[in-house]
């Protein structure tokens, strides 16, 4: 090397960083999970456009459905809003859970994950961290809907605590549902295929529920589906919490379904993650 520029890598410098720091103790699962959460937060900071789906999407949904169906279904948009808002909250957040899988899929394709996977860390933290970060996104989406709802005339009968409880329940369910997309994100080979599949599951799941219409108005076979759809139970529970009706049973169902999703898809995800490639 004849000419030395500021960019020049000095052998000495490299050698000194190699021996300068002692090996720290192995970090625990919480630290590594939070570190991956922090990474996801940094990505939001650098690419804020990715928040479009949790801001613009809910606004569009709420306005569209309130004014499109309100008059026809409940006589007035004001009355409809009281019922449809918790439903749209559930639907929107359920829809955006699929981005968890898309982000992971992209990460794996790019090879960043190779490095993470070659680290001696608690392996699920690479998946749990982003899921925690998604909690932030879900909360943001919920906040956008609630603020807009309040402006449009949404009046939660059970007050702020009811709203907080219902959003809390929604987050529990969304976290559980995210594991499904995480697993698919690992298994599916392309982002597009994953997107298509997610849509195919999410559209019927959210629309064929009690979000927009009372199930009693539906043909019997459809009503039967609506009745077993977990989204229906979630929405009923959220409406109850928001307006102060007793919905202990429905909350129980949602929690059991959530626990079931994590119990099945958590280990399954880790299995395919380990098996992958």
């Amino acid at each position: 090397m004849s000419i030395s520029t500021p960019e020049e890598v000095a052998q000495e410098a490299v050698r000194s960083v190699l021996s300068s720091t002692a090996r720290p103790p192995r970090p625990d699962a919480l630290v590594t999970s939070l570190t991956f959460w922090w990474r996801a937060m940094l990505k939001i900071k650098h690419v804020p456009e990715q928040l479009f789906d949790v801001t613009a999407f809910p606004v569009m949904f709420l306005l569209m459905f309130t004014y499109l169906f309100g008059g026809a279904l409940a006589g007035s948009t004001g009355a409809y809003l009281q019922e449809v808002l918790p439903g749209i909250l559930a639907m929107t957040v359920a829809m955006i859970t699929m981005y968890t899988g898309l982000t992971l899929n992209r990460d794996i394709q790019k090879g960043v994950h190779d490095r993470f996977r070659s680290l001696p860390i608690w392996r699920p933290s690479t998946l749990v961290g982003p899921l925690l970060a998604d909690g932030v996104r879900y909360t943001l989406a919920a906040a956008v809907i609630l603020v807009l709802g309040l402006i449009l005339g949404f009046r939660p009968g059970a007050g702020p605590m009811g709203v907080v409880a219902s959003v809390g329940l929604l987050l529990v369910f969304a976290f559980a549902l995210s594991w499904v997309w995480t697993m698919l994100g690992i298994v599916m080979r392309s982002e597009n295929a994953l997107m298509g599949l997610s849509m195919m599951i999410l559209f019927p799941l959210t629309f064929i529920s009690n979000v927009f219409v009372p199930p009693e108005t539906l043909p019997r076979w459809l009503e039967a589906f609506v009745d077993v759809n977990p989204i229906t139970h979630l929405v009923t529970a959220m409406r109850g919490l928001v307006h102060g009706h007793s919905v202990t049973g429905e909350i129980g169902i949602v929690l059991v379904v959530s626990a079931g999703l994590v119990a099945v898809f958590g280990p399954l995800t880790m299995y395919v993650y380990r098996k992958k490639a």
Binding site: T21, R23, P24, P25, R26, P27, V31, T32, T35, W38, R39, R115, F116, L119, I121
Partner: peptide, 8 residues
């Protein structure tokens, strides 16, 4: 990020 993951 990597320093944290190695336990620093």
């Amino acid at each position: 990020l990597l320093c944290r993951l190695w336990g620093h």
